[in-house]
């Protein structure tokens, strides 16, 4: 980092610098007026473009939201006895929301500590060359299409977990989430969550690794010079510095876990909401949409889009919460 500082002047050596050397500016305002007109125009164009891009995204998102609301509206307005085979919309959507939350929560519970561990391993433990290769492999895994994860889940993971589930239901069956009888195919919510975890690990790891690598070297060296062990150094400098970034990374992973369709649709043997994670049952919103969309028409199509809207709103709520958490921790961030 220190080296970058020294290099910056050479990068920016140019007309702007020489222009300001003729007269010493008194105030920032004066400084701005003194620079060449081209530079000022550049500033305006650049900030304008940045603003326009931001606004464009907002517009696109509003368009998506409007589309969702318009398409979903009939499901809310229509007589509830016609929705989802007479169940009504809210009784239909509630188990799906719960299933989605459980699946995503378990996936993140598994993925977050592991990802942080792996990111630390790559950034602070592994030898440099090995770390580069590992980073490469992990990035690669983010790209495996979800169909492949789904196929891997059914053909390899689910059968492999069946003995584990049998053992769990025998040993820990008194806990409701491990209540038997376990699924004979292994296609349970826990399996789906594990597949989701494997899918989000590359995303979280990749972002975390980049952030860990950006920790100011001086902080780290200061900690080590004071006699801290490697772990103490990480706990005192790297983690506080990276905390907002870690939360961001987890949110990215959460987005993927909540919205993932194909892998869950393939792996999970869906059914009504049940507490046990090792029996077949439960369902997520995204998988429900993917499974039923192809044959849906009329009101049932509206219902599915309404389910998409609910997922959308749910994501909104979670993200507001996460932002709030980050803003509370801002003062600890070592960055700006």
């Amino acid at each position: 980092m220190a080296k970058t500082l020294h290099e910056t002047p050479s990068v920016t050596k140019g007309r702007d610098v020489t222009a300001t050397q003729t007269k010493t500016p008194e105030s920032p305002k004066e400084l701005r007026e003194m620079s060449s007109g081209r530079g000022a125009a550049g500033d305006r164009i650049f900030s304008g473009a940045a603003l326009a891009a931001g606004v464009l995204i907002l517009v696109a998102l509003v368009a998506v939201a409007v589309f969702l609301v318009v398409q979903a509206l009939p499901a809310f307005v229509a007589p509830q006895s016609q929705i989802a085979n007479g169940q009504g919309f809210w009784p239909y959507i509630f188990p799906l929301v719960v299933g989605t939350v459980i699946a995503a929560a378990i996936a993140l519970l598994i993925a977050t500590p592991i990802s942080i561990g792996v990111a630390l391993f790559i950034s602070h433990y592994a030898p440099r060359r090995l770390a580069q290769i590992l980073g490469y492999v992990i990035d690669l895994l983010a790209a495996i299409p979800s169909v492949i994860f789904g196929a891997w889940g059914i053909s390899f993971l689910a059968p492999a977990l069946v003995p584990g589930y049998t053992w769990l239901s025998n040993a820990l069956g008194w806990i409701p989430i491990f209540a038997g009888p376990p699924s004979a195919t292994g296609k349970t919510l826990l399996t789906a969550s594990i597949v989701l975890a494997v899918m989000v690990i590359p995303i979280i790891t990749s972002v975390c690794r980049e952030i860990f690598l950006q920790t100011p070297k001086l902080h780290e060296e200061a900690a080590l010079a004071l006699g801290a062990t490697r772990w103490e150094m990480i706990r005192m400098t790297v983690l506080p510095f990276a905390r907002p970034g870690i939360i961001s990374a987890v949110m990215l992973g959460l987005g993927r876990a909540l919205g993932e369709t194909m892998a869950v649709a393939l792996v999970l043997s869906s059914g009504p909401l049940i507490a046990s994670l090792i029996r077949s049952g439960n369902q997520t919103i995204a998988a429900e949409i993917a499974l039923n969309f192809p044959e849906a028409s009329g009101l049932s199509l509206n219902t599915l889009i309404a389910a998409g809207l609910v997922l959308f709103l749910f994501t909104l709520a979670v993200n507001i919460l996460a932002r709030w958490v980050i803003s509370r921790h801002k003062e600890f961030s070592g960055a700006n």
Binding site: I154, S155, P159, T185, K187, L266, S269, L291
Partner: peptide, 19 residues
């Protein structure tokens, strides 16, 4: 139990005795 698509159902039955 359930599975997606004809091929998913057949794979599941083929992998599970008694299905």
């Amino acid at each position: 139990e359930n599975a997606k698509g004809t091929s998913g159902v057949v794979t599941t039955v083929t992998n599970t005795q008694g299905a």
